[in-house]
Design a binder for these strands. Structure first.
Lengths: 158, 158
DNA sequence: TCTTACCTTTACGTCAACGTCAAGGTTTGG
DNA sequence: CCAAACCTTGACGTTGACGTAAAGGTAAGA
């Protein structure tokens, strides 16, 4: 029964339209993201259909969140994902070597990348934070006035 | 000396290229923002030159920050600025009326707008916050490894 | 086997957010 | 008054991020 393993591995792979439904993206968008190097499908079928696995779904969700919620451009997203990939490769190299000097170099590079990411994210977060603060201040002011008014209205209703 | 007031008011007004230098935007971008309704120049000269005042500069800086730092689209920015303007008009109406029922209605609308803004901003902020958290976690891990290595390196140097 | 639904690549269309001339008017120092 | 520097309004070009239609290949059930 060599067909069983094939069936089980196939069962977890999705075709592009299923992925589109699952992620809320269009098939065109998914293909476009592949075109610009944001993700490659886990596999291709015999007839060259794109086949995606669970980690592909995660990655697409992540991309969508970065795009919609955080407002990053696709090139910024690619930069973030590439840094992530470089991080993974670095970890491999780190595990492969025992020379402490080299290890320190790898770690230093990793630190730099993370600091770059944090700087990028912090700039956005800071701007958003002040805007949110302002909005909340306005909200409390408005609600204060509304509470004042409640007193006046109930007084008048008496 | 009717010319004095004109001189002083003129002195504080900038032409488009000065504004561009000041804000780091291009003249084309500034004209485009006018085209799509993000800001109108405070005045025009005799020869129809655009003339901007200090509040125009503030507004342009603000727009630039929202665009670059927060990653909003121009239509989102226009929405935010229009809500801001509606807020101003509402305050006027609020001061103009004494009827508590009407006052409550105006305040209710204002509350709605602010809540909409907060929801929009919070979504972005939340996504950014988790990303920043992750990045910091990685950073501390990396630094932990680096500190470990310091021990090994100094030990080897002895 | 054949139809129907889904997939492929290729390619042109679109919208936002500008860049880049072109042709002409305005301001200002010499 | 005049030349250089700056401005005006078009209008067409470009890039990113997709939409959409065309011409075919594939998968699965009747």
């Amino acid at each position: 029964m060599p067909d069983a393993s094939l069936a089980t591995s196939t069962r977890t792979l999705l075709r592009i339209n299923e992925v589109a439904v699952e992620t809320g993206l269009t098939t065109r968008t998914i293909r476009y993201y592949e075109e610009v190097g944001l993700l490659a499908p886990a596999a291709r079928s015999d007839g060259d259909y794109r086949l995606y696995d669970a980690s592909d779904l995660d990655r697409l969700q992540f991309i969508r969140d970065l795009r919609d919620d955080a407002g990053f451009s696709l090139s910024q997203i690619r930069q973030l994902l590439e840094d992530e990939a470089a991080r993974g490769r670095n970890r491999e190299r780190l595990r492969a070597t025992t020379d402490p000097i080299e290890r320190r170099r790898y770690l230093g590079e990793a630190e730099e990348r993370v600091l770059r990411q944090i700087a990028l994210l912090d700039a956005k977060a800071a701007r958003l934070a002040t805007m949110i603060e302002d909005a909340h201040a306005r909200l409390t002011r408005i609600r204060g006035h509304l509470i004042e008014l409640e007193g006046v209205v109930t007084e008048a209703a008496r």
